[in-house]
Design a protein around this nucleic acid. Structure first.
Lengths: 93, 93
DNA sequence: CCAGTATATCATGTTATAATCATATGTCCA
DNA sequence: TGGACATATGATTATAACATGATATACTGG
């Protein structure tokens, strides 16, 4: 495993290391949703949620699509849900 | 998913969000190893490695066993390797 | 064009986490 | 017991990350 690879993997893990971001994942896990909607679902400030969404999209975790005056964020790769589920399971084992 | 659960999952992810700690996991993935040995394998300061090892053990990621004048750290639950492998795969997909 | 709604960004204060150096603790053996 | 080796801890500094409030940009309907 190269150093660069480790760095990128670590970065991905760090992205998941924030409760608010996990909540966001939960919010968009079955369908893309507008920022507005996500903000309400996770109970965060618009500015704060927006920042996390940008970050996650930039990291390739979320997809971003502008439709009308809203922006829809969705899961880029459902595999990330398995990662979360595995980690959840690991906590109990 | 309760808030407390999210917090704990996030904490676990944050633990994996450090390249040095991933290296440590790699170093002990097939057998427990002494701190001394791990330090050499990952190329870190003794103090720094020790701190990370303590942290990971406290979080339930690693097992800790004192044998003679050495302390052996090993994987507590091999499931964590699957989490890492999945994340690695996710990066490419 | 204007008002309103939706989203993003910027500046700032604060907290959290990591690396380092020095030092302490503990264990073994001569 | 003293000295060498292995590990842990404490204090300090540096850096990264988050939350917030204010503001900017973009789109839409009237």
């Amino acid at each position: 495993m190269t150093l660069d690879e480790l760095d990128r993997i670590a970065l991905q893990f760090r992205l998941l290391g924030e409760p608010l971001r996990l909540k966001i994942l939960e919010a968009v896990c079955d369908r893309p949703r507008a920022v507005n909607d996500i903000v309400a679902a996770v109970g965060a400030t618009q500015a704060n949620a927006s920042k996390h969404l940008s970050l996650m999209a930039a990291a390739g975790l979320l997809s971003r699509e502008k439709r009308g005056q809203s922006v829809y964020y969705g899961l880029k790769n459902p595999l990330i849900l398995r990662v979360c589920a595995l980690m959840h399971a690991q906590l109990k084992g």
